[in-house]
Design a protein around this nucleic acid. Structure first.
Length: 979
RNA sequence: GCCGGGAUGGUGGAACGGCAGACACGGAGCACUCAAAAUGCUUUGCCCGCAAGGGCGUGCGGGUUCAAAUCCCGCUCCCGGCACCA
């Protein structure tokens, strides 16, 4: 029999942990009361005297592989924050649900025939078990799953809201800004009353349009609309991909199949209507600057002008950010996909500007060796379409292109400038056509040099009077300077600075109808259709004429039916001439329905595409607030309570910026910095505009956590070997560590935790070997939350030793008796305790868990050295440890005589009188180098300290030639500078 | 290429412009033990020295300052994001 039967071992930890988890569940310890709705408990809400807090993690996908030790990092961090804030007297809502639609389950279904729901639910069960064992203080009533029809009913409802609204850029918002979503019925009313004219081609008014014609007018306004858009069609997967799902190589991220551009009718989200607000409101949220910057870059707002050039009869619009350089435009470039050159191969031939023969004297370099411009452009377009994006990038330095044989007229000076087709101009940005100013743009400069096009300097550096010009320089001048060579009979920009020149020329162009100031965005509308099975069905049907109709709310949810085969029809990966056929399309009984949509029963066909994964994860945080509500996606009072704007300032924001509301703390990986966070912001703003929520932003504060990575090892063939079985050997001759597996030398690398690298460590192993509390302490002590850091199983023991010492300070290992007594505490220990309280509070508030744990360890180590353990130190120590190691803390708290949970015990407060020691060590520097130390009273005056320091032997010896100056920072430092 | 972030012992990491390396892992030694594990104690940046003590030290090179890991300038390397964005 062991001499220490009551030692805090992994086994004992496990018993304690499971017991407390059961008790928390039974008592509903972490249930957060709602002020309103189905769970209204206003009396309980009123009990919290220090406000409330909403803390969330990013929505997890329940992967089939279960969790590894990297996953819980953020969950533990938010749990610590949540538990800490409960002890501050706040009503804290912390919970977690499952983003359960998704491709892995569908692909598994394709392979095995297993219904994705079965796989997904099994995965959720595993993940729930693993998370429960971690002891997270989640409100377990609020676990939602996106695949639950009662959940996706509201996903579909939001889609209807978006579909049934339009963006009125002129409407005044509550905050005084302009532009908001409005119900489409208000637009229809405007058309009906004639307040807004219909822009029909034949001049007919709204009253004269047929139903389908009206719908096609409305589609141009709806925020969710069907569009015949160029999409990324991947025959190998049988589905259409969003731009983000296509690699730089022009292949599918999943499966690495070729991706082709095809035109398809797809549901789109008009996120571009919100470009300005999405960009501007970044000032109002407390997010990492780098994430704000990523979103700003993604939105890509740039101020500039649209200028109309003419190529013969054809007007061509170009977008430029530098209208001030218009006089330097010596050629024009159209993208290979531009409609004015796209016509050469068929249907739109009439629109082409490509000349039928080369003009007199065309340089051979411009023709690409072809007999006619038509041939040359056709060949170039074909070559460009075959180039992958990566090939285009590799060639980025060598500009390619061909002359179209056509000339455009520069509107400022009437000069005829040659028009080229070149793939460095992209159809997807601006207008797909540029005016090329080689003197002021590096790409245009490279092209001009290569093709021998004239280069005219129009901006000269203001601070270099003897500037020889861009050609002499060998590079374009892109800096700020002064306009030169820029005048015609009516206007001169010469001598103006860039900004003034821009304003002057833009005004001139506008007066003559040649152009106007405009803002361009990189952001494009969001492709929302997927040709997949495992997603939310659209609440949309098509009538016999093919016109789409939104279903009324009363028909929700549109339940996802079972299908015999889960895969979309796939094709020869290289066959571009194919079209998607989603799995739902095979269910004739489901697809063809008779419905009464207000004008009697009629035959309709259902939309067979499904929504993308983003749909369910765009709004889930709202459903957490009121998951049982059948009447609304969230009760208005609940939303306002948890997420509504508050009278507070936004950290780091410009003066006058107001809090937009939102989740108080949102933690998750930075890989979702752009898409998820942008899409969710967009949906939230639509819901705000339509009056469904009071918050203007979904996430008021976002924290980007780092990742836990791990070492992986490969044998001589490059095959990964199980990392857990690798043995570290003696360092080699260079001092680098060596590693072996089964006696064979292996090489080490550092990377993601995953099956493929055979370096997975699961939390289950940690519970088994150390217990959940130790695992929690280790993860939180590894380093700052925002940093990525390597997992090291052998270091976990440090966290275990800390908890064992804490246990031993409270519980006798041999008898199991409590060791804590009511004893006097030395002033020294009191000071340490109070300093620790102050430091831990500050660290918890700033998510500095690693330093908080270091402080707790120091205090605990000090207690370890005592013969008796005073209650007045042990209790606050246990309470402070509780957010990080909650089970151990609860157990010790109860053994110290407290029957209830410590969840809502007040967090210890520091006594300001006990924050300073009686004496401190003063450092004495001579010329900035530490040469001596002395103990002094902590309230010593500067003069006394100076005198004491100057009297020291070492100081006297160093200042034989006199003292130049003495810097005193009482009580900790004196710096003596000898003459 | 552009934008952003970083570089501190053998390792993860601490450090309002004021004692560099808190805390932890690992290493070394000691105690307890028949032994091992566990635990406790001591020690652990590098160099010289028996020691007292001294010198060097926060990626590299400069600067500001009484004082720089921290602020400024110029590099190197690493990580993240974007990428021919007009």
């Amino acid at each position: 029999m062991s001499e220490t039967p009551h030692r805090y071992t992994a086994e004992l930890a496990g018993q304690i942990e499971v017991a407390w988890q059961d008790r928390w569940e039974q008592e509903g310890t972490f249930h957060a009361p709602n002020p309103s709705g189905p769970w209204a408990e206003p009396d309980k809400v009123a009990e919290f005297d220090n406000g409330h807090l909403l803390v969330l993690d990013m929505f997890p996908y329940p992967s089939g592989a279960g969790l590894h030790v990297g996953h819980p990092l953020g969950y533990i961090a938010t749990d610590v924050v949540a538990r800490y804030n409960r002890m501050l007297g706040k009503n804290v809502l912390h919970c977690l649900g499952y983003d359960a639609f998704g491709l892995p389950a569908e692909q598994y279904a394709v392979q095995t025939g297993q219904h994705p729901r079965v796989t997904t639910e099994a995965n959720i069960a595993t993940m729930k078990r693993q998370l429960r064992r971690l002891g997270l203080g989640h409100d377990d009533r609020r676990v939602i799953e996106t695949i639950d029809p009662e959940y996706y009913r509201w996903t579909q409802w939001i889609f209807l809201q978006i579909h049934n609204s339009w963006y009125d850029a002129e409407a005044v918002r509550a905050d005084g800004g302009r532009g908001r979503a409005r119900p489409i019925s208000e637009l229809i009313a405007q058309f009906e009353s004639g307040q807004r004219a219909v822009l029909s081609e034949d001049g007919r008014g709204w009253a004269d349009l047929t139903g389908p014609e009206r719908e096609s007018v409305l589609e141009q306004f709806r925020l969710a609309y069907a569009s015949e858009a160029p999409v990324n069609w991947c025959p190998g997967l049988g589905t259409v991909l969003s731009n983000e799902e296509v690699t730089n190589e022009g292949r599918s991220e999943r499966g690495n199949y070729p991706v082709f551009k095809a035109k398809l009718r797809q549901w789109m989200m008009r996120i571009t209507a919100y470009s300005d607000r999405l960009a501007d409101d970044l000032d109002r949220v407390d997010w990492p600057e780098k994430v704000k910057l990523m979103q700003r870059n993604w939105i890509g707002r740039s101020q500039g002008a649209r200028v109309t050039f003419h190529i013969g009869e054809h007007p061509v619009e170009v977008f430029t950010t530098r209208p001030d350089t218009l006089f330097g435009a010596t050629f024009m470039v159209l993208s290979p996909e531009h409609p004015l050159v796209a016509g050469t191969d068929g249907d739109e031939a009439g629109a082409s500007i490509v000349a039928s023969s080369w003009p007199e004297g065309t340089s051979a370099a411009w023709t690409g060796g072809h007999a006619t411009p038509t041939e040359a452009v056709e060949a170039y377009r074909l070559a460009a379409s075959r180039k992958s994006d990566v090939e285009r990038q590799m060639d980025a330095k060598d500009k390619t292109g061909v002359f179209t044989g056509a000339y455009a007229t520069n509107p400022v000076n009437g000069t005829a400038i040659p028009v080229f087709v070149a793939d460095y101009v992209l159809m997807g940005y601006g207008t797909g056509a540029i005016m090329a100013v080689p003197a002021g743009d590096e790409r245009d400069f490279a092209f001009a040099q290569q093709f021998g096009v004239p280069i005219i300097d129009v901006i000269a550096p203001a601070d270099q009077p003897d500037w020889a010009g861009s050609v002499a320089d060998g590079k374009a001048f892109t800096g700020n300077g002064v306009a030169i060579n820029s005048s015609n009979d009516e206007i001169s920009l010469d001598g103006l600075a860039v900004d003034d020149a821009k304003a002057r020329i833009t005004a001139w162009l506008a007066e003559r109808g040649l152009g106007e100031a405009t803002v361009n965005y990189r952001l494009r509308d969001w492709l929302f259709s997927r040709q997949r099975y495992w997603g939310e069905p659209f609440p949309i049907v098509f009538d016999e004429e093919g016109t789409s109709h939104a279903l009324p709310e009363s028909m929700l949810p549109v339940v996802l039916p079972d299908v015999p085969d889960y895969s979309p029809r796939t094709f020869d990966p290289d066959d571009a001439n194919t079209a998607p056929e989603p799995p739902l399309g095979r269910l004739d009984d489901w697809v063809n329905v008779t419905l009464d949509l207000g004008d009697g029963p009629k035959q309709y066909r259902r939309e067979t595409n499904t929504m993308p994964n983003w749909a369910g994860s765009c709004w889930y945080y709202l459903r957490y607030l009121d998951p049982e509500n059948r009447e609304a996606l969230v009760d208005a009072a609940n939303e306002q309570y948890w997420m509504g704007p508050r009278p507070m300032t936004v950290p780091g924001a410009p003066a006058g910026v107001t809090d937009p509301g939102g989740v108080d703390l949102y933690v998750g990986g930075v890989e979702h910095a752009v898409l998820h966070l942008l899409y969710a912001r967009f949906w939230h703003k639509v819901l705000f505009d339509l009056g469904h929520v009071t918050s203007e932003e979904p996430f008021r504060r976002y924290f980007a956590q780092g990742y836990i990575q791990a070492f992986a090892y490969r044998d001589h063939r490059g095959q990964p070997v199980p990392a857990a079985e690798v043995v570290e050997g003696a360092p080699d001759s260079k001092g680098e560590p060596t590693f072996t597996w089964n006696g064979e030398p292996v090489t080490r690398e550092y990377g993601k935790i995953g099956k493929s690298l055979k370096n997975v460590v699961s939390p289950d192993e940690m519970y088994e070997e150390y217990g959940a509390d130790t695992f929690r302490v280790y993860e939180m002590s590894m380093g700052p939350l925002e940093l990525s850091k390597p997992w090291e199983t052998r270091a976990v023991v440090g966290a275990q030793r800390f908890l064992q010492r804490l246990w031993r300070n409270v519980v006798d290992e041999e008898t199991g008796e409590t060791r804590v007594v009511d004893a006097e505490v030395s002033r020294e220990l009191s000071v340490l305790l109070n300093q620790t309280i102050a430091a831990v509070r500050e660290d918890f508030a700033t998510l500095g868990f690693n330093t908080a744990i270091a402080r707790l360890i120091e205090l605990n180590n000090a207690v370890t050295k005592l013969d008796v353990v005073p209650r007045s130190v042990a209790e606050p120590l246990v309470l402070m440890t509780a957010p990080i190691a909650p089970h151990l803390a609860e157990e010790l708290w109860s053994r110290m005589g407290h029957p209830g949970t410590l969840t809502h015990e007040p967090f210890p407060q520091a006594d300001p009188a006990l924050l300073v020691e009686d004496t401190v060590t003063c450092v004495i520097q001579i010329k900035g180098k530490v040469r001596d130390r002395m103990e002094v009273a902590s309230d010593i005056s500067e003069d006394d300290l100076r005198e004491l320091a100057l009297a020291r032997e070492k100081v006297k010896a160093a200042t034989e030639n006199g003292v130049r100056t003495v810097i005193v920072r009482a009580p900790k430092l004196v710096n003596v500078v000898p003459a």
